[in-house]
Amino acid sequence: MAKTALIIVDMVRDFTSPDGKVFYPQNQAILPNIQKVLAKCREYGALIIFIRNSYRKDKYDKNLQTMRVNCIEGTGGDEIDPSLKVDPVKDYVIKKRRYSSFFGTDLDLVLRENGVKNVIVVGTKTNCCIRATVTDAYYLNYEVYVVSECVATNDETVNRVHLEDINKYLGHVVTMDELFEKFEGGIL
């Protein structure tokens, strides 16, 4: 069993594609870095989990009352970015409807069933979905690593402030090189 899991949060077409409903260029810019981390995690046998922000078509959802309508099932906007290849046999794809990848999903159960102790979190948006996911992972006693070049939001100052808080209170913010050293050193 893998003791480490890579959690890729909300890298779906509405966030990553220029024609997406809530596209930010920063999300597209981090895709190559996430691809590298994904490849390294596969190489070292980490469990791969894609979190897919997905709202039910024609159904009420509180989140959609305060934001632009996005990631509606059946529109293609909630599909994982095609540059991030999902292995349908080994990888998990977990749908969510709230900021935290843990809330209302079976993510914690999947991690525990697979003996995961360490979670690497990458994706979008640092101030909402990344922060909420990291906070819940911390409360559930996972050792959390956020890769600084693999998270983004639409404002670099906001991104930096949230990464500083995560590093101070909730986990470890590491560079890609530092993450790869942890794999090579057997820490992850």
Rank of each mutant, 00 (worst) to 15 (best):
D14S: 06
F15P: 01
F15I: 10
F15L: 09
P18H: 09
D19Q: 10
G20Y: 00
G20C: 07
K21W: 05
F23D: 03
P25G: 03
P25C: 03
Q26I: 13
N27M: 10
N27K: 09
I30E: 01
L31V: 11
L31Q: 05
L31H: 04
P32I: 01
I34Y: 04
I34C: 02
K36R: 14
A39Y: 07
A39E: 09
A39F: 06
A39P: 06
C41H: 07
C41Q: 06
R42E: 06
E43R: 10
E43Q: 12
E43W: 09
G45P: 03
A46I: 00
L47D: 00
I48F: 10
I49W: 00
I49Q: 00
F50P: 07
I51S: 03
I51W: 00
S54Y: 05
Y55R: 02
R56F: 13
R56G: 11
R56H: 15
K57G: 06
K57L: 05
K57N: 11
K57W: 02
D58Q: 08
K59C: 14
K59Y: 11
K59E: 15
Y60N: 03
Y60D: 01
Y60F: 09
Y60G: 00
K62V: 15
L64K: 01
Q65R: 10
Q65A: 08
M67H: 12
R68P: 14
R68C: 12
V69Y: 00
V69K: 11
V69C: 07
C71K: 01
C71N: 01
E73L: 08
E73F: 04
E73D: 10
G74V: 02
T75W: 08
T75V: 06
G77P: 00
G77T: 01
D78C: 07
D81A: 12
D81I: 08
P82K: 08
L84E: 00
L84I: 04
L84F: 01
K85Q: 13
D87E: 12
D87S: 04
P88Q: 10
P88I: 05
P88S: 14
V89T: 15
D91V: 04
D91S: 07
Y92K: 15
Y92S: 09
V93E: 07
I94F: 15
I94L: 11
K95G: 13
K95Y: 11
K96G: 07
